[in-house]
Amino acid sequence: MSRELPTAFAIGEALRIALAGDPDVILMGEDVAGGGTRPAGTDEAGGILGATRGLIKEFGPERILDTPISEMALLGAAVGAAATGMRPVVELMFMDFLGVCFDPLLNQAAKFRYMFGGKARLPLTVRTVTGAGMHAAAQHSQSLYWITSGIPGLKTVIPSNAGDAKGLLLSAIRCDDPVIFCEPKQILFLSSEVPEGDYEIPIGKANLVRQGGDVSLVGMGATVNIALQAASQLAQEGIQADVLDLRSLQPLDEEAILTTLGKTGRLIVIDEATPRCGIASDVAALCVDKGFDLLNAPVKRVTAPFSPVPFSRVLEEAYLPTPQKVIDAVHELF
Protein backbone atom coordinates (compact mmCIF):
# COMPACT_ATOMS: atom_id res chain seq x y z
CA MET A 1 0.00 0.00 0.00
CA SER A 2 1.71 3.17 -1.12
CA ARG A 3 1.46 6.39 0.81
CA GLU A 4 2.57 9.94 0.19
CA LEU A 5 4.29 12.24 2.63
CA PRO A 6 5.89 15.69 2.42
CA THR A 7 9.70 15.52 2.29
CA ALA A 8 10.03 17.17 5.72
CA PHE A 9 7.99 14.33 7.26
CA ALA A 10 10.01 11.71 5.42
CA ILE A 11 13.15 13.26 6.91
CA GLY A 12 11.62 13.03 10.37
CA GLU A 13 10.78 9.39 9.73
CA ALA A 14 14.36 8.61 8.74
CA LEU A 15 15.66 10.34 11.87
CA ARG A 16 13.30 8.33 14.07
CA ILE A 17 14.43 5.06 12.49
CA ALA A 18 18.12 5.98 12.81
CA LEU A 19 17.72 7.03 16.45
CA ALA A 20 15.77 3.91 17.36
CA GLY A 21 18.25 1.59 15.71
CA ASP A 22 21.55 2.99 16.95
CA PRO A 23 22.21 4.41 20.43
CA ASP A 24 25.21 6.37 19.09
CA VAL A 25 22.99 8.53 16.89
CA ILE A 26 22.27 11.95 18.38
CA LEU A 27 20.67 15.04 16.90
CA MET A 28 22.25 18.44 17.48
CA GLY A 29 21.01 21.79 16.29
CA GLU A 30 19.24 25.03 16.94
CA ASP A 31 15.61 24.50 17.98
CA VAL A 32 15.64 20.78 17.17
CA ALA A 33 13.69 20.62 20.39
CA GLY A 34 12.85 24.29 20.94
CA GLY A 35 10.33 24.65 23.75
CA GLY A 36 10.60 20.90 24.27
CA THR A 37 13.56 21.48 26.60
CA ARG A 38 11.18 22.96 29.19
CA PRO A 39 10.32 20.43 31.89
CA ALA A 40 6.60 20.70 31.31
CA GLY A 41 4.01 22.26 29.17
CA THR A 42 5.20 23.83 25.96
CA ASP A 43 5.46 21.85 22.78
CA GLU A 44 8.71 21.37 20.92
CA ALA A 45 9.41 23.32 17.75
CA GLY A 46 11.16 20.45 16.07
CA GLY A 47 13.55 22.61 14.09
CA ILE A 48 12.84 25.16 11.41
CA LEU A 49 10.88 22.61 9.36
CA GLY A 50 9.32 20.70 12.20
CA ALA A 51 11.22 17.66 10.95
CA THR A 52 12.39 16.76 14.45
CA ARG A 53 9.07 17.39 16.21
CA GLY A 54 8.20 14.62 18.61
CA LEU A 55 11.72 13.24 18.83
CA ILE A 56 12.65 14.78 22.18
CA LYS A 57 9.63 13.14 23.80
CA GLU A 58 10.60 9.81 22.33
CA PHE A 59 14.38 9.92 22.76
CA GLY A 60 14.94 12.49 25.50
CA PRO A 61 17.13 15.59 25.84
CA GLU A 62 20.38 13.59 25.96
CA ARG A 63 19.93 12.53 22.33
CA ILE A 64 17.98 15.46 20.94
CA LEU A 65 20.39 18.24 21.80
CA ASP A 66 19.26 21.81 21.43
CA THR A 67 22.25 24.07 20.96
CA PRO A 68 22.73 27.80 21.29
CA ILE A 69 22.76 29.84 18.06
CA SER A 70 26.42 29.13 17.92
CA GLU A 71 27.22 27.22 14.76
CA MET A 72 30.99 27.04 15.26
CA ALA A 73 30.52 25.24 18.58
CA LEU A 74 27.71 23.14 17.10
CA LEU A 75 29.71 21.89 14.12
CA GLY A 76 33.02 21.74 15.98
CA ALA A 77 31.58 19.76 18.89
CA ALA A 78 29.78 17.44 16.47
CA VAL A 79 33.08 16.71 14.73
CA GLY A 80 34.75 16.04 18.08
CA ALA A 81 31.88 13.78 19.13
CA ALA A 82 31.97 11.91 15.81
CA ALA A 83 35.71 11.33 16.11
CA THR A 84 35.25 9.83 19.58
CA GLY A 85 32.40 7.40 19.04
CA MET A 86 29.10 9.19 18.51
CA ARG A 87 27.20 9.40 15.23
CA PRO A 88 25.87 12.97 15.30
CA VAL A 89 23.27 14.35 12.94
CA VAL A 90 23.57 18.12 12.88
CA GLU A 91 20.84 20.44 11.71
CA LEU A 92 22.48 23.50 10.18
CA MET A 93 19.35 25.54 9.69
CA PHE A 94 20.31 27.02 6.31
CA MET A 95 23.35 26.18 4.25
CA ASP A 96 24.10 29.90 4.02
CA PHE A 97 25.20 29.69 7.67
CA LEU A 98 28.22 27.67 6.57
CA GLY A 99 29.99 31.02 6.62
CA VAL A 100 30.19 31.07 10.42
CA CYS A 101 31.14 27.43 10.94
CA PHE A 102 33.17 26.33 7.96
CA ASP A 103 36.39 25.34 9.67
CA PRO A 104 35.05 22.22 11.41
CA LEU A 105 33.95 20.92 8.00
CA LEU A 106 36.68 22.26 5.74
CA ASN A 107 39.76 21.68 7.87
CA GLN A 108 38.67 19.17 10.49
CA ALA A 109 35.98 16.67 9.47
CA ALA A 110 37.02 16.51 5.83
CA LYS A 111 40.68 15.95 6.55
CA PHE A 112 40.96 13.91 9.75
CA ARG A 113 41.00 10.55 8.08
CA TYR A 114 43.60 11.57 5.53
CA MET A 115 45.83 13.66 7.80
CA PHE A 116 45.81 10.92 10.42
CA GLY A 117 46.86 8.24 7.95
CA GLY A 118 43.49 6.50 7.77
CA LYS A 119 43.14 6.20 11.54
CA ALA A 120 40.00 8.27 12.03
CA ARG A 121 36.35 7.73 11.36
CA LEU A 122 33.99 10.68 11.06
CA PRO A 123 30.39 9.42 10.98
CA LEU A 124 28.83 12.88 10.83
CA THR A 125 25.74 14.01 8.94
CA VAL A 126 24.95 17.67 8.40
CA ARG A 127 21.35 18.26 7.34
CA THR A 128 20.93 21.68 5.84
CA VAL A 129 18.23 23.55 3.94
CA THR A 130 19.34 24.81 0.55
CA GLY A 131 18.04 26.76 -2.40
CA ALA A 132 15.64 29.49 -3.36
CA GLY A 133 11.90 29.52 -3.88
CA MET A 134 10.54 30.84 -0.59
CA HIS A 135 11.36 34.54 -1.01
CA ALA A 136 13.99 34.22 1.68
CA ALA A 137 16.50 36.44 -0.16
CA ALA A 138 20.26 36.41 -0.44
CA GLN A 139 21.33 34.96 2.93
CA HIS A 140 18.75 32.17 3.29
CA SER A 141 18.43 30.84 -0.26
CA GLN A 142 21.80 29.79 -1.58
CA SER A 143 22.64 26.44 -3.12
CA LEU A 144 26.16 26.10 -1.79
CA TYR A 145 26.57 22.36 -2.31
CA TRP A 146 29.22 23.10 -4.93
CA ILE A 147 31.46 24.22 -2.07
CA THR A 148 31.16 21.06 -0.01
CA SER A 149 31.25 18.86 -3.12
CA GLY A 150 34.65 20.32 -3.97
CA ILE A 151 36.27 19.35 -0.68
CA PRO A 152 37.96 15.95 -0.61
CA GLY A 153 36.83 14.01 2.45
CA LEU A 154 33.24 15.26 2.44
CA LYS A 155 30.34 13.61 0.68
CA THR A 156 27.36 15.67 -0.48
CA VAL A 157 23.92 14.34 -1.36
CA ILE A 158 20.69 16.05 -2.40
CA PRO A 159 17.35 14.28 -2.72
CA SER A 160 14.70 15.29 -5.25
CA ASN A 161 11.65 13.81 -3.51
CA ALA A 162 10.37 12.55 -0.18
CA GLY A 163 11.07 8.86 -0.70
CA ASP A 164 14.65 9.52 -1.77
CA ALA A 165 15.13 11.91 1.14
CA LYS A 166 14.31 9.15 3.61
CA GLY A 167 16.56 6.54 2.02
CA LEU A 168 19.46 8.89 1.36
CA LEU A 169 19.34 10.27 4.89
CA LEU A 170 19.47 6.79 6.39
CA SER A 171 22.50 6.04 4.20
CA ALA A 172 24.14 9.32 5.19
CA ILE A 173 23.69 8.70 8.91
CA ARG A 174 25.08 5.16 8.68
CA CYS A 175 28.00 6.23 6.50
CA ASP A 176 31.36 6.40 8.31
CA ASP A 177 32.34 9.55 6.41
CA PRO A 178 31.05 13.11 6.89
CA VAL A 179 28.02 13.66 4.67
CA ILE A 180 26.33 16.96 3.83
CA PHE A 181 22.63 16.23 3.31
CA CYS A 182 21.01 19.06 1.37
CA GLU A 183 17.29 19.71 1.80
CA PRO A 184 16.08 21.82 -1.12
CA LYS A 185 13.34 24.24 -0.09
CA GLN A 186 11.24 23.60 -3.16
CA ILE A 187 10.70 19.93 -2.33
CA LEU A 188 10.39 20.11 1.45
CA PHE A 189 6.64 20.50 1.48
CA LEU A 190 5.91 18.54 -1.71
CA SER A 191 4.46 15.10 -1.09
CA SER A 192 5.52 11.98 -2.87
CA GLU A 193 5.55 8.25 -2.24
CA VAL A 194 7.55 7.19 0.79
CA PRO A 195 8.03 3.47 1.38
CA GLU A 196 7.35 2.21 4.90
CA GLY A 197 10.12 0.96 7.14
CA ASP A 198 13.86 1.06 6.94
CA TYR A 199 15.56 1.33 3.56
CA GLU A 200 18.67 2.97 2.21
CA ILE A 201 19.51 4.62 -1.08
CA PRO A 202 23.23 4.28 -1.81
CA ILE A 203 25.43 7.38 -1.85
CA GLY A 204 27.24 7.83 -5.16
CA LYS A 205 24.56 6.40 -7.43
CA ALA A 206 22.42 8.50 -9.74
CA ASN A 207 18.89 7.50 -10.65
CA LEU A 208 17.44 7.51 -14.15
CA VAL A 209 13.91 8.74 -13.42
CA ARG A 210 12.64 9.01 -17.00
CA GLN A 211 13.59 7.18 -20.17
CA GLY A 212 13.87 8.83 -23.57
CA GLY A 213 16.39 8.59 -26.36
CA ASP A 214 16.75 12.11 -27.76
CA VAL A 215 18.28 14.27 -25.05
CA SER A 216 19.59 13.84 -21.50
CA LEU A 217 18.40 16.20 -18.80
CA VAL A 218 20.57 15.96 -15.69
CA GLY A 219 19.17 17.46 -12.50
CA MET A 220 19.74 17.46 -8.76
CA GLY A 221 17.40 18.28 -5.89
CA ALA A 222 14.63 20.61 -6.98
CA THR A 223 15.82 20.78 -10.59
CA VAL A 224 14.83 17.15 -11.14
CA ASN A 225 11.17 18.18 -11.04
CA ILE A 226 11.94 21.02 -13.45
CA ALA A 227 13.59 18.55 -15.79
CA LEU A 228 10.60 16.20 -15.55
CA GLN A 229 8.17 19.01 -16.33
CA ALA A 230 10.31 20.08 -19.28
CA ALA A 231 10.50 16.47 -20.45
CA SER A 232 6.73 16.04 -20.52
CA GLN A 233 6.29 19.23 -22.54
CA LEU A 234 9.08 18.18 -24.90
CA ALA A 235 7.37 14.83 -25.39
CA GLN A 236 4.36 16.66 -26.82
CA GLU A 237 6.59 18.00 -29.58
CA GLY A 238 8.12 14.59 -30.15
CA ILE A 239 11.40 15.00 -28.25
CA GLN A 240 11.93 12.20 -25.74
CA ALA A 241 14.20 13.00 -22.79
CA ASP A 242 16.17 10.89 -20.37
CA VAL A 243 16.02 12.51 -16.93
CA LEU A 244 18.88 11.65 -14.60
CA ASP A 245 18.65 12.54 -10.91
CA LEU A 246 22.21 12.82 -9.61
CA ARG A 247 21.15 12.24 -5.97
CA SER A 248 24.83 12.36 -4.96
CA LEU A 249 27.06 15.30 -5.91
CA GLN A 250 30.21 13.89 -4.34
CA PRO A 251 30.90 11.15 -5.19
CA LEU A 252 29.52 11.91 -8.65
CA ASP A 253 28.12 8.97 -10.61
CA GLU A 254 30.20 9.56 -13.74
CA GLU A 255 29.18 6.26 -15.24
CA ALA A 256 25.48 7.10 -15.14
CA ILE A 257 26.10 10.50 -16.75
CA LEU A 258 28.20 9.02 -19.54
CA THR A 259 25.68 6.21 -20.05
CA THR A 260 22.79 8.58 -20.69
CA LEU A 261 25.02 10.78 -22.84
CA GLY A 262 25.99 7.72 -24.87
CA LYS A 263 22.33 7.01 -25.45
CA THR A 264 21.27 10.52 -26.53
CA GLY A 265 24.40 12.39 -27.62
CA ARG A 266 22.88 15.59 -26.21
CA LEU A 267 23.04 16.68 -22.58
CA ILE A 268 21.70 19.55 -20.54
CA VAL A 269 22.48 19.93 -16.86
CA ILE A 270 20.12 21.93 -14.69
CA ASP A 271 21.51 23.38 -11.48
CA GLU A 272 19.90 25.84 -9.09
CA ALA A 273 23.31 27.15 -8.03
CA THR A 274 25.32 29.94 -9.62
CA PRO A 275 27.24 28.97 -12.75
CA ARG A 276 30.90 29.33 -11.76
CA CYS A 277 32.90 26.41 -10.32
CA GLY A 278 29.77 24.34 -9.84
CA ILE A 279 28.20 20.95 -10.34
CA ALA A 280 26.84 21.95 -13.76
CA SER A 281 30.33 22.92 -14.87
CA ASP A 282 31.71 19.66 -13.50
CA VAL A 283 29.17 17.61 -15.41
CA ALA A 284 29.89 19.57 -18.59
CA ALA A 285 33.62 19.07 -18.13
CA LEU A 286 33.10 15.35 -17.61
CA CYS A 287 31.12 15.11 -20.86
CA VAL A 288 33.85 16.89 -22.80
CA ASP A 289 36.72 15.11 -21.11
CA LYS A 290 35.48 11.53 -21.01
CA GLY A 291 32.48 11.68 -23.33
CA PHE A 292 33.71 13.79 -26.24
CA ASP A 293 33.12 11.08 -28.81
CA LEU A 294 29.57 10.62 -27.55
CA LEU A 295 28.58 14.25 -28.08
CA ASN A 296 26.40 15.27 -31.01
CA ALA A 297 25.90 18.82 -29.74
CA PRO A 298 27.39 21.21 -27.18
CA VAL A 299 26.70 20.51 -23.51
CA LYS A 300 24.30 23.13 -22.12
CA ARG A 301 24.08 24.38 -18.56
CA VAL A 302 20.86 25.84 -17.21
CA THR A 303 21.77 27.48 -13.90
CA ALA A 304 20.99 30.50 -11.79
CA PRO A 305 22.65 33.68 -13.04
CA PHE A 306 25.89 34.89 -11.46
CA SER A 307 24.19 37.02 -8.83
CA PRO A 308 23.02 36.76 -5.24
CA VAL A 309 19.51 35.37 -4.75
CA PRO A 310 16.98 38.23 -4.96
CA PHE A 311 13.96 38.75 -2.72
CA SER A 312 11.08 39.92 -4.92
CA ARG A 313 8.90 37.12 -6.28
CA VAL A 314 9.40 38.41 -9.81
CA LEU A 315 13.16 38.53 -9.47
CA GLU A 316 13.37 35.16 -7.78
CA GLU A 317 11.38 33.54 -10.59
CA ALA A 318 13.76 35.13 -13.06
CA TYR A 319 16.67 33.79 -11.02
CA LEU A 320 15.65 30.13 -10.82
CA PRO A 321 15.85 27.53 -13.58
CA THR A 322 12.38 26.83 -15.04
CA PRO A 323 10.98 24.20 -17.41
CA GLN A 324 10.82 26.86 -20.13
CA LYS A 325 14.51 27.68 -19.74
CA VAL A 326 15.27 23.98 -20.09
CA ILE A 327 13.05 23.66 -23.18
CA ASP A 328 14.75 26.69 -24.74
CA ALA A 329 18.13 25.09 -24.12
CA VAL A 330 16.95 21.84 -25.68
CA HIS A 331 15.78 23.67 -28.78
CA GLU A 332 19.28 25.07 -29.22
CA LEU A 333 20.58 21.50 -29.57
CA PHE A 334 18.34 20.36 -32.45
Binding site: A77, G80, A83, N107
Partner: peptide
Protein backbone atom coordinates in the same frame (compact mmCIF):
# COMPACT_ATOMS: atom_id res chain seq x y z
CA UNK B 1 44.03 26.23 12.67
CA UNK B 2 44.30 28.43 15.76
CA UNK B 3 41.44 27.61 18.14
CA UNK B 4 40.07 24.70 16.10
CA UNK B 5 40.86 22.10 18.74
CA UNK B 6 38.69 23.80 21.35
CA UNK B 7 35.29 22.75 19.92
CA UNK B 8 36.73 19.33 19.07
CA UNK B 9 37.60 18.70 22.71
CA UNK B 10 34.15 20.00 23.62
CA UNK B 11 32.67 17.31 21.37
CA UNK B 12 34.90 14.64 22.91
CA UNK B 13 33.63 15.76 26.32
CA UNK B 14 30.07 15.40 25.02
CA UNK B 15 30.85 11.82 24.00
CA UNK B 16 32.27 11.11 27.45
CA UNK B 17 29.16 12.52 29.08
CA UNK B 18 26.66 10.73 26.83
Amino acid sequence: IVGAGIPLATGAALTAKL
